[in-house]
Structures are given as structure tokens and as C-alpha cells.
Design a protein around this nucleic acid. Structure first.
Lengths: 210, 210
DNA sequence: AAAAAATGTAACTAATTAGTTAACTTTGTG
DNA sequence: CACAAAGTTAACTAATTAGTTACATTTTTT
């Protein structure tokens, strides 16, 4: 069995810490302790804190965006592409919940000091969405809309859902309110896709998602 | 002309700083300097950093939630109520942009260490939404849905939109892409309301928003 | 086996930062 | 005006934290 390399342990631990406490709130001594790794080892593998953060973002963002692009490419119709876009974003976010937390923090900062790489990745998603929506307009299935708003609906909704899973579980415990305890993202993605597509369709006579 | 009281200056400056840099990233010396106030004055008016933060949240969250509740109460039909809910949330968020940033950060932290007061305020919004949706179901205008998902769509979309205004303006400058420079929230709220209501309506023969 | 790369230890530094102190100034009130 | 309470100030303390250093030990590569 291949043992987890120190560099990998550090990257994973750092991603979790940055997601939970933000860049400033993440403390390097804590990171060392939580990964069972010496602090000097962190600095052996990563130049400094900000570089480590950038490495985390790269390792986190790139494969998610890649997965979405690949998945969307497999569909042909604009409606199917859009549904796939939304559902894959939901699936990937759920599989890597630190993505949502980190992205939300970065957006909260205005995103202006977001490392170039992470910003590029977010722009790739937006560009893809624009293409899909434009295709839909060409095919006369979708109405013309502002892609940015659709993008915000997707990212905002899914991120918020994923990031608040721990909060909602805590609330459900306190209040005995089970409806809060929705932690499966799949149906959320589905309903979101349905909602967005429904509002985009030019004509209600078009085949609608059930 | 009544001069702005120090306590007020501190609260406003602190809210901005917490929104921009998060709790850990906000530095008390910076706060003092930016408000043109001595650091000791901050501690004279507010016990410590965490208490100051709680004061900021209280001053920020409560009036927003109050405004939404009041606005929704003025409508009678479920559809109008929901539209008002969304549009007022959008309007209030836009008017107090630090709200979006702070809320996003708190949600990113899982919300588990969100001060009780702020959490209560968010629950008030959710409770209101639940009532409106239930009323819609009673009136046979709305389909039955998970209120939490609708809530996330509203809060997630609007928050993301408001929080990224500075980022989008920066991007628009860089790329000359004007479509990014949408900084008026009103149409976003309107489209969001339309989208959500459209997906909730039991029947397409119901009067739909244009 | 020798060399090189990776990891661990533990104490250190320099800078930052939350919070304090004690003296000082302004303001409200009889 | 007098004088107490409220508010403000510069300088200080104590703790925290990013990053370092010098050296020992283990693992991997050649």
C-alpha cells in the first residue's frame, strides 16, 4: 500500500484548514500538528503560506472545472448541455466540499486578490455557460438572457447548499426539524436545473424536464 | 450638523473591514487608523474584537430582515409576496453590500460559530419564506417544494451577485467585456423572482410575470 | 554502499497584533 | 464657574504567529 506522501498530506490538510478558517484564520502551527507533520516540512515543500494557498487552489479548482467541461461536451443539445453543466457542478462541489467554502470566501473578498489561476478557472466555467446559452438561442430553444445571472444562480445556490451542510445538521439536531437535514446535493442540482431551464425555454410546448 | 459619533464611526468602519477581510483578517490597528480614531477608543466602546463583531452583525442583519418582513406583509397573494420577498432581499443587499460579504464568509465557515443573533435573523427569513410557500400551496398556485432550496437560490444568487460587483468591474476593465459590468441589482432580483415563480407555478395558465 | 532527497526535532527570530494603562481633554450639569 | 463623568490619546505589554536554522535521522535513488 502506497503511503500518503507528506506533500500530499500537507496539501490536503491545508485545503481543509483554509476552507474552515480562511487564509488569515489558518495557522501554520495548527496545520503542522493536524497533518502530523513538522512545520519545517511544510516550508520544505512550499515556499510560504501564500504559495501553499495557491497550490491548494490549483489542485482544487482545475479538476472540477475540467470535469464540468468534459461532461458538457458529451451532450449535444443545448438543454441537455445546460442540465449537465448544472448537475456536474453540483456533483463536483459535493464531492469536494472545501471548494464551495473557499470559493465563497474569495467571492466575499470581492475576488480582487484571488490568485490568477483560480480566477481563470472560474472564467472557464462562465465561458462554457455562455457557449451553451448561445447555442440554445441559436437552436431557438432558449430565450436570450444574461449569462452572468444564470452563472450566479448556479454557483450561488450550489455553493451555499454545500457550505451549509454542517450548519444545517447542527440546526436539525437543535430543532428536531428534519427538513433542514437535506444533505444530498443531487436533488438540489436537479431541481435547480429544472428551474433554470424552465425559465429559459422560449415556449412551454418544448419538452420540459418532468 | 450633528457630527458622526465615534461609536458609530467605529461600527461602520469595522463592518467594512470585517466584510473585506473577514474576522481574522481585520486588524484592530487598521480599524483605528481608517476611522481616524484611537485604538483605545475602540476598546472603550466595545469590550473586545469578538463583541465588536457581534455588534456589527446585529446592526447589519436586523434591519434588513425587518425590512423584508414588513414588505412581504404588505402583499396579500402568495405570488406577490414571494416576488416582494425576493426583490426586497435584493434591494436591501444592494443597499448594504457588506451584508452579502459577511454572510458569505459566515456560511463558508459552516455557520457553526455564527453568533446566535445573526443565526436567528437568517432563520426569520427562512420561516417567512416557508409561510409564503405554504400559502401558495394552499391557494393552489404553487407546487410543493423544499423551501430550503428556494431560500438558497435567493440568498446564494443575490449574495454572489452583490459580493462580486468589485470583481466584475475589475474584470470588465481588463477585458473590455461590458456584460460583466452589471452592477444594478434590481433586474437581477426581477429575473430571479420571475425564474423562481415560474418554476413554482402549478399551471402555466396562471398569470405569469412578463 | 554511497549519494541524494526527504523528513523530523526543537529552539529561535522578527514581526505582528489584541488588548492595557495612565495621563489628558472635552462635555454635560448643578 | 466648578467639577465629575465621558471620551480620547500615545506609549506600552504580552501573546501569537510566519518563517528560519542547524542538525539528526530516515528513505529513495543511483
Amino acid at each position: 500500500m502506497a503511503k500518503i506522501k507528506t506533500a500530499e498530506k500537507i496539501l490536503m490538510g491545508a485545503t481543509r484548514l483554509f476552507a474552515q478558517h480562511g487564509y488569515d484564520g489558518a495557522i501554520m502551527d495548527d496545520l503542522a500538528e493536524q497533518c502530523g507533520v513538522n512545520k519545517a516540512s511544510i516550508y520544505y515543500h512550499h515556499k510560504d503560506k501564500i504559495t501553499l494557498y495557491e497550490h491548494c487552489l490549483e489542485a482544487l479548482f482545475t479538476p472540477i472545472v475540467d470535469a464540468i467541461i468534459v461532461a458538457v461536451e458529451q451532450e449535444s443539445g443545448a438543454q441537455d448541455k445546460l442540465a449537465m453543466h448544472i448537475n456536474t457542478f453540483a456533483k463536483e462541489s459535493a464531492a469536494k466540499p472545501y471548494f464551495a467554502a473557499i470559493l465563497m470566501r474569495e467571492m466575499a473578498s470581492g475576488g480582487t486578490n484571488l490568485p490568477v489561476l483560480a480566477r481563470t478557472q472560474m472564467q472557464r466555467i462562465l465561458r462554457l455557460l455562455k457557449q451553451v446559452l448561445a447555442q440554445g438561442v441559436d437552436e431557438k430553444v432558449f430565450k436570450k438572457t444574461e449569462p452572468l445571472i444564470v452563472h450566479f444562480m448556479i454557483v450561488g445556490t450550489i455553493n451555499l447548499f454545500v457550505a451549509t451542510i454542517p450548519l444545517r445538521n447542527a440546526l436539525a439536531m437543535e430543532e428536531g426539524c428534519q427538513s433542514l437535514k437535506v444533505s444530498n446535493v443531487k436533488p438540489v442540482g436537479k431541481q435547480l436545473a429544472k428551474t433554470i431551464i424552465r425559465s429559459l425555454l422560449t415556449d412551454v410546448t418544448h419538452p420540459m424536464p418532468p
